[in-house]
Design a protein around this nucleic acid. Structure first.
Lengths: 181, 181
DNA sequence: AACTTTGTACAGTTTTTTCCGTACAAACAA
DNA sequence: TTGTTTGTACGGAAAAAACTGTACAAAGTT
């Protein structure tokens, strides 16, 4: 086996591992392979380059590179004289993790908060309604307690995301290069 | 609108929100609805109960309750005199979040670590191989640097998961009830 | 202006996933 | 033992998602 071949195999192993785990980012293995290919490519790539490299349609490349961009795993690059759009992976994986975490959870937190607030208000009205049977009121009380619990939970989650975005998390779990500082 | 109806609507809103966000846990909306139903049900449920509540087949209930159990969102319960398996939601959402985080990422970290170690070793051999051209060696050097970077990243991620599992995260981001302590 | 290049919207096809019904094994009951 | 109940494996149907090719709009070139 010659050197180039060994290198390619070493790269392929990593790319395939990324592809198999990218579902954690809500992406398909194809998008993972695309990301991996870009990761080892030392120059920004065009959609046509990706089509070439991965043997897939340009349409697919376009949609999945958009998905990768939405999660801030990939960014556009410019190079003078080149008209085509160029893309490259963002090289700060710590920041990418934080961005992922933020994008994924903030939306969920927000949707839940709205729903919880609405339902909680309705139930509080119900609690004070004299026309409601005692038996039902008991259930309402239990539900209110449950909703207050998950409201607090999402409030905690929100602060957790803050801690990541503000990089406070690195105080608790330092990056390796910061350990020796 | 009577009280029962208001209660059900308030519950339904939350259940539907859970269903729409459960993909963050890698589960289907159906499993989310199942979880939500169990959440508001104040007694443990059997598979037949769920079939009844959700209008889905018992087979589906069985498979998705297993998925929920695997992520430790749901646990088995016992009640004397009842032969059927009973399930209820785990009521500590903070712990559920930690469990999810741990289960999802540990596996990914482990798979990546193995692949990175293997590829890194191969490339280090290549670096010392006198039969490899200087041009290729330059590429190898770059790849080694990249792999060392992501190796460190996964090592950080591993410590991050530790911080969650050990509950150190609550030092950085306290639960609401701990804020007043 | 006309012509070329590039990215993506859209519709159709293929692949994958979800869900159901049947069948059966394990546990329990009589 | 035989009969009953309960959970799940498995194959197939239905639904959803991924992927492709065509068509076209936007931007650049001549």
């Amino acid at each position: 086996m010659d050197g180039k071949e060994t290198l390619d195999k070493a790269r392929e192993r990593i790319i395939e591992t990324i592809a198999q785990n990218i579902h954690l980012y809500g992406l398909t293995p194809s998008a993972g392979r695309q990301y991996g290919t870009m990761f080892f490519h030392n120059e920004p790539l065009t959609l046509d380059d990706m089509t070439e490299e991965l043997g897939m349609s340009k349409t697919s490349m376009s949609t999945s590179v958009r998905a990768l961009s939405d999660l801030k795993l990939v960014e556009r690059a410019w190079k003078r004289g080149i008209r085509k759009d160029l893309y490259q992976v963002k090289d700060d994986w710590y920041q990418s993790f934080i961005d992922l975490f933020s994008i994924k959870w903030r939306r969920s937190i927000s949707l839940h908060s709205v729903a919880i607030r609405k339902s909680l208000t309705e139930l509080q009205v119900l609690r004070n309604d004299p026309g409601v049977s005692d038996e039902l009121k008991e259930t309402v009380e239990i539900d209110i307690a449950k909703l207050e619990y998950i409201r607090d939970y999402y409030e905690w989650l929100d602060r957790l995301v803050d801690a990541f975005e503000d990089h406070d998390i690195f105080d608790l779990v330092p990056r390796k290069d910061e350990l020796t500082k």
